[in-house]
Each structure stands twice: as C-alpha cells, then as structure tokens.
Simulated scan of single mutants.
Amino acid sequence: MEKFDSLYQRAAERKGGAAILNLLLGDNQQDHLVAKLGDDRILSAFSKKIFQSGFVWRVVENKWPNFEEMFFNFDLAKVLMMPEEMQERKAADARIIRNFNKVKTIQANAHMMFDEIHSDNSQHDSFAKFIAAWPSNDMIGLWDYLKKKGQRLGGNTGPYALRAIGKDTFLLTRDIEAYFRANKIIDGGIQSKKSLLAIQNTFNQWQNESDLSLTQLSRLVAFATGDNHIQVEFD
C-alpha cells in the first residue's frame, strides 16, 4: 500500500505545489456540526440525492424549493402521516420531479430515521446525532446501514448524501476506483464487501499517517490520479 507522504507529494506536484494542494483539499470536516442539524435537513438531503441519482442535478436543485414546500419542509412527523393517495397526488405535480417510486422513498426513509431514534437500544434523540457519532474508521458500515435500512440509499447515493450534510466520508468516484485497481488493492466489484473493506482499511491507514479527514484524503487520491493536472497561479 502506498504511504501517505508519497500520495501527497505526487498530488502536490500535479497541482502546482503544496500550498495550492492544501487549498484544493479544503477544510477538515467536523462531524460534531452534523449533530446540530435538524432531522428534517437530513431527510431533505437524503431525498435530494435520491432524486438527483440518474437525473440532471441542476434541474433537481432548481425544483428543490418546491419539494420543500410540498413535503412540509421534510418534517418527519408530517411526512410520516401522509396517506398513499396524498403521495400519489404530489408525485403527479409538475412542480417537482414526477417519479412516484422516488417520492415514496421520502416517507420510507423518514420511517428509517424515526425507528432508529425510538428503538429500544437507541443512544441518540435525533438521527443527526446518530449519524454524527458513527466512527470514521467504519464508514462502510454506515453506508451498509443506509442501504439496508433505507430505500435507494445504496451505491454512491448514500455516501454523497452524507457528504452533503457534512459527515466526513470518502467517496468512490471513478478516479478513486481507478487508483485502487491500479494499485491492486481491489480486483473485484467496487461494492463487494471485500473491496469496500480493503478501501476502508487503506483510508484508515492514511488517517493514521496524517491529520487529514476522510473527505480530504478522498480528494487527495483523486488529485493524485487520472487526467487532472491543474496548475493554479497566484498574483
């Protein structure tokens, strides 16, 4: 496995130096800020990424204020009370993306969140705090939870939704997948349990060797891989 220092130096050379690379990596993610979010914002983020999956993101972004209005600003209690005929009516409204199967995931994922908060062994009074407390050295465990407990949150949708709310996580972009294959860290399907564990372990090792977050490390791998040589000059 490549050491962090080697990965960092290659990315810095490709981006025009350490100072520029550090700017591109962005700030360190702070999971404790996620805990301060309302669960309505978590449900909104999950739902937006579901609708953006396989669709033009810009169109979903432009229509999202209409989603907020039609689905009670994603208030869990109100969403959970929607009868199916109301969901059908909303799914047929041209003000949003008319996809009944995706509309149904809003209530389904509200159920996931409600059930987690009110389970007998729950240690958190909000789903936001549940997400915030999940350890970074087992992000694939959180991905698996969302995939199994939620609806349409598997694949890259769940990770992108987590990134959107500020949860520190790596992503499996094409550049990152290419890196792990080129370095023979994975050889099977990217979403197989074996591959995901190998990728998580690699990110865990890099975190032990650095002070970077998973988000920053994920960007670092992308910057060190593929056709993305970018030179940035300061005046």
Rank of each mutant, 00 (worst) to 15 (best):
L153D: 12
R163V: 07
N109M: 05
R98N: 07
M113Y: 02
L153S: 10
V79W: 13
Q151S: 15
I140K: 06
F67E: 12
L80H: 11
S126L: 01
N99D: 14
E116D: 08
R95I: 05
G141E: 09
G154L: 06
K102H: 13
P159H: 09
P159K: 04
A164E: 15
N73E: 15
K148G: 00
D138A: 13
H111Y: 14
W143Q: 08
F74C: 03
D144Q: 14
S119G: 13
W64Y: 13
L76N: 09
A164P: 00
D138I: 03
K148H: 05
M113L: 02
E69T: 07
I140E: 11
K90F: 14
L162Q: 10
R95H: 11
R89N: 13
M70C: 07
K148N: 10
N73L: 05
F71W: 09
M139N: 11
D120M: 09
Q123G: 00
M113S: 01
A110I: 06
N137D: 15
D75E: 15
S119D: 14
Q87I: 06
G141S: 09
P83T: 02
R163E: 15
N73W: 11
A128S: 14
F72G: 01
R98Q: 12
T105I: 04
D75V: 04
E88I: 07
F127E: 09
K104N: 13
R163G: 01
W64V: 05
A108T: 14
Q107L: 09
H118K: 02
F72K: 02
I97P: 07
A128R: 01
N73T: 03
A161Q: 05
I106S: 04
K102N: 13
F74G: 05
R163A: 15
K129I: 01
Q151D: 10
E84R: 12
N66G: 01
I140D: 09
L142Q: 10
E69W: 06
F100V: 12
H124N: 07
K78I: 01
F72N: 03
R152L: 10
V79C: 12
E68R: 12
N137L: 08
W64T: 06
N137E: 15
L142F: 11
N73D: 15
M113V: 01
F114L: 00
M139P: 00
A91N: 03
R98G: 02
G158W: 11
F114T: 00
K102P: 15
I106A: 02
R95S: 15
I106Y: 05
V103M: 12
M70N: 12
L153A: 08
Q151W: 00
L80S: 08
F67P: 02
E68D: 13
Q87H: 05
N109T: 05
F72R: 03
K104R: 15
H124M: 01
L142T: 11
A161M: 04
E116R: 13
Q123S: 10
I106E: 05
G154H: 08
R98S: 04
E68I: 02
T157H: 01
Y145D: 07
G150F: 06
H111C: 07
K148M: 08
E68Y: 03
Q107E: 13
G154F: 11
I131K: 10
Q151A: 14
H124V: 00
D144V: 03
S122W: 12
F127N: 08
L80F: 14
A91S: 14
L142P: 10
E85N: 09
Y160E: 08
M70T: 02
R163L: 15
